[in-house]
């Protein structure tokens, strides 16, 4: 099921109005449970939760997206790749990691099609999540841009591309059949 953000907001708004009417007429924000009809108190408080996440120490990764590049970090001592990129090497206890551009070539390890979506993803059509083993030896998990998921096969060659995610318009990375 897909529902635009506007439609969702409309639905929530309509429901809140119903609750408000009930509260006005009955003196209590109490509604029947949709399945059992048991009385439920509709919380009069609401949380709107949006996190502010620091990215300073891996900012190069996000700068890379703007240039159409995907970066990983690598420990120059142990030659360990880190993806998602991180700033610290827990093996060496050091922060001397170097930025390396990902080759972008890999093989599909596994995938799924998300049909039942989380609340904050309801506005997208069904989406394919895939994990690929990149030529460098580490894995990347992201959406797979593909017309027909039935054409996907474990083991097939894939490539990594940077694209905007709509409708939000932020830059992110996708796998595509190679």
């Amino acid at each position: 099921m897909t529902m635009s953000r506007e439609e969702m907001e409309q639905m929530v708004k309509a429901w809140l109005q119903t609750v408000e009417q009930i509260t006005r007429s009955e003196g209590l924000p109490v509604v029947p449970d949709e399945k059992t009809a048991d009385p439920l108190w509709v919380d009069v408080r609401e949380l709107r939760l949006k996190y502010l996440i620091p990215i300073k120490r891996v900012k190069k990764f996000f700068d890379g997206l703007k240039e159409g590049k995907v970066y990983a970090t690598r420990c120059p001592v142990k030659n360990i790749y880190y993806f998602p990129p991180q700033a610290d090497c827990p093996v060496c206890m050091d922060e001397n990691l170097e930025w390396v551009e990902v080759s972008g070539r890999g093989q599909l390890l596994t995938y799924t099609v998300i049909q039942v979506k989380p609340a904050s993803y309801m506005h997208y059509p069904d989406y394919v999540i895939a994990i690929a083993r990149m030529d460098e030896g580490f894995n990347i998990l992201c959406w797979m841009a593909v017309e027909d998921p039935a054409t996907l096969k474990v083991g097939m060659h894939v490539k990594l591309v940077v694209k905007r995610r709509e409708p939000e318009g932020f830059l992110t990375y996708y796998l595509e059949p190679a």
Partner: peptide, 26 residues
Amino acid sequence: NYFWEFSQFGLTFPGYYALYATAYMN
């Protein structure tokens, strides 16, 4: 992993296990 796997790619609990199911069945 909230930031790298949920916030950008919307994994669901069935989705996580579906990744195992696809690999296992294959």
